[in-house]
């Protein structure tokens, strides 16, 4: 699996002049459903450049937090604030890849093209971008194939290609490899690394410690909806500060 990293250099669109919407600030964000608080008051600031991994056991609220950041959910209280936005529309500078890829009933290439059309990229530029991202993700030979006939792993790669085509400043990934086999997981991680190398901020959830070790620059450790520990990945794995994080790293379940 060859994954190129020269995407930015060859991209037909120049977005380099654009200011970054980052950093992302969560100001006391909480989320409740029917009076039950699922996400505690979360204060944090996510800087550009790094790969942030939101780690925690199932049910910790990782996916909810990601959706709150991406704007798919509105916080019950607090604010999700893109400090650098300054006139930019933050929603146009983000993309998200979900645990289960949702492919439209059309070809792989048309799925990417659809996303570009929604962002009002002129038709004349779209073809080149589509070819390029399919190339970069190793999907070129599937361009004309119906997206839903691809294997699950290939669909997830296509979801990454579709997100990458948008050249987001921030890419959210919600457990993107949770239902993939090791080979597909590795391919997805390579693509994520390439997207990051091309200048995109990565914010991703996982409960897979190995994956967090491989990908994370920084860890946000979530437990029962609260952000209880945060720090550089290396420090988090070698010297976790909280008992919950120690228990999680050592493989003890916590609920």
């Amino acid at each position: 699996m060859e994954v190129g990293v020269n995407f930015v250099g060859t991209a037909p669109r120049a977005r380099s002049a654009k200011a970054s919407i980052l950093p992302l600030e969560l100001k006391g964000v909480s989320f409740s459903v029917a009076g039950e608080r699922l996400i505690g008051e979360i204060f944090c600031r996510l800087e550009s450049g790094t790969r942030t991994v939101i780690l925690g056991p199932n049910g910790a609220g990782k996916s909810l937090l990601l959706r709150l950041c991406h704007g798919l959910l509105q916080p019950s209280s607090g604010e999700v604030f893109w400090r650098g936005a300054d006139g930019l529309d933050p929603t146009r500078c983000q993309a998200m890849v979900f645990q289960r890829p949702v492919m439209l009933r059309r070809s792989a290439a048309a799925n990417v093209d659809y996303a570009l059309a929604l962002r009002k990229i002129p038709r004349s530029e779209r073809g080149d971008i589509v070819r390029e991202v399919l190339d970069q993700t190793g999907l070129a030979r599937f361009a004309g194939q119906a997206a839903r006939t691809l294997s699950f792993g290939e669909q997830q790669k296509l979801a990454l290609a579709r997100a990458w085509a948008l050249k987001p400043q921030v890419l959210f990934l919600d457990e993107p490899t949770a239902s993939l086999d090791p080979a597909a997981t590795r391919a997805v991680e390579q693509i994520v690394a390439a997207i990051h190398a091309a200048g995109t901020k990565i914010i991703m959830t996982t409960h897979d410690l190995g994956q967090a070790r491989r990908l994370a620059d920084e860890i946000l450790f979530l437990h029962k909806g609260r952000l209880i520990e945060r720090g550089p990945a290396e420090r988090f794995f070698t010297a976790p500060e909280t008992a919950a994080a120690r228990a999680f790293i050592s493989g003890e379940l916590l609920w």
């Binding site: 798919l72 983000q94 998200m96 949702v102 009933r105 059309r106 659809y114 929604l118």
Partner: peptide
């Protein structure tokens, strides 16, 4: 819904997409 909203489609853009799909 989540995927289309993430891509920036509101109900108006989703309508023809969903009819086709």
């Amino acid at each position: 819904a989540e995927q289309l909203r993430s891509l920036g489609a509101g109900p108006a853009q989703a309508l023809p997409t969903l009819l086709w799909d």
